[in-house]
Computed example of a mutant assay.
Amino acid sequence: MALPSVQRVFLESIASSSDPEGRFIEVNGIQTYYKKVIPQSHKHLLQNQHFIPNETNKPVILLLHHILGNLYTWRHHMQPLADATGCHVIAYDRPTFGFTERPTKWEEGQNPYTQEASVDFAVQLVANLGYKNRKIAFAGVSGGGGIICAIAIKYPDLVHSLILIAPSIRPEDQGPPPIGRHILGSAPGRLFIKIALYQYLPLTLFYHNTNSIPDWETVVKPTYRVPLTLPNFYESFSWLMKYFVPLNILPNKDILTQKPILYISGDDDRYLHVDKHREVFDEIASTPTSSTSHPNFKMEFKVINECGHLPQDEKPQEVLNSIIDFLISLQI
């Protein structure tokens, strides 16, 4: 048996000391850091019967974080979501971010840093955790929202519902323009990334008011900065930019409307203005298949006051309440 890489051993060591509830699983050859929670009402069964019950008619809830984020962003949501819905809830660090391994080489056609790879990666993760062919209620913030839309387009039969939190869906909103990605994917660009992120991460531009977030300076900010010290972070982020091609979402909006959608935006989103979010929502909602005659038709647009681009961080309780109300309305 081959010995694990130094990177894997190091990531496991740091992760276990940071959060003992986190776990690792291999997905498409990548050691992936994730957390899974089950309803409190099920935990006594797990202790007594040595299995995790999950009703076959219940979907799994999968949470996808934003670029430069990690699963920590869902710290206020996972257990309450599980308890309120009776579902298992999973969050993971997307490749490049958090404690998930960052490959330095790959076979042709297996580049883990493309957007298409991110789509298949999420689906494979759920399957590897034992939920193959189970319906999934997806929640994604910013770039994570774009990925879950692409999953719904490619794998519609797997999707129970979509919760889009300040999603980046239009091509011009999905990261920097091509020339910017080319620069960031170069050696000088990598140096710029290192200097900029070391100085400014987490980006306060994404928030309405960081002073409203408890423990921002002592806990939240340092946690988001941990990946800056981990192996291959800057290289992998540079590759992510180099190979970034926007996902083709809105041309397939007729597929999206076949699933229930909750769209959440902050009123002070300085990255994607709330009016742009409203335009995207209206464009999706106006497709011919969006009619009350469609059995799965349900679309809601929610604006959260005094909130920026990352509502799950800045207004976690309001986001949590909105998600729970939405899923319960679907008789989850």
Rank of each mutant, 00 (worst) to 15 (best):
K105G: 03
D120A: 08
Y92H: 12
Y131K: 01
T104S: 14
R134L: 11
G109P: 04
A127E: 15
H88E: 13
F97H: 14
N128M: 11
A137Y: 08
E108P: 08
T85N: 07
F99E: 08
F97Q: 10
F99W: 06
L125T: 07
A117I: 11
R102G: 05
L129M: 06
Q79D: 07
L129F: 09
D93R: 00
G130W: 10
D93S: 01
A127G: 14
E108I: 12
G86W: 05
E107V: 08
H88T: 11
H88P: 00
A137F: 12
V119R: 02
R94A: 14
G98M: 10
P112R: 00
Q124N: 15
P95A: 03
N133L: 11
P80N: 07
R134F: 14
V119D: 13
L81C: 01
H88Q: 13
L125Y: 10
V119K: 06
T100M: 06
K135E: 15
Q79V: 08
P112K: 02
F97L: 13
P103R: 07
H88F: 00
V89N: 02
Q110Y: 04
W106V: 10
Q110D: 06
Y92N: 04
R134G: 12
T114Y: 06
T96H: 07
N128R: 10
A82G: 09
T114P: 08
D93V: 02
A91K: 01
V123F: 01
K105S: 15
P80W: 09
K132A: 15
A117H: 14
H88N: 12
Y113V: 05
A127C: 14
L81E: 03
E116I: 13
T96I: 14
Y113H: 01
R94H: 04
G86P: 07
V89Q: 02
T85K: 03
W106N: 05
M78P: 04
F97V: 08
G109N: 01
N111H: 05
L129G: 04
I90E: 12
E101H: 02
C87N: 03
Y113L: 10
P112S: 02
K105Q: 14
F97I: 09
F97P: 02
D93L: 01
H77Y: 04
P103S: 06
K105L: 09
P80D: 06
Q124E: 15
T114H: 01
L125S: 09
K135Q: 15
D120I: 04
D120K: 09
N128T: 11
C87D: 05
P112L: 00
W106I: 11
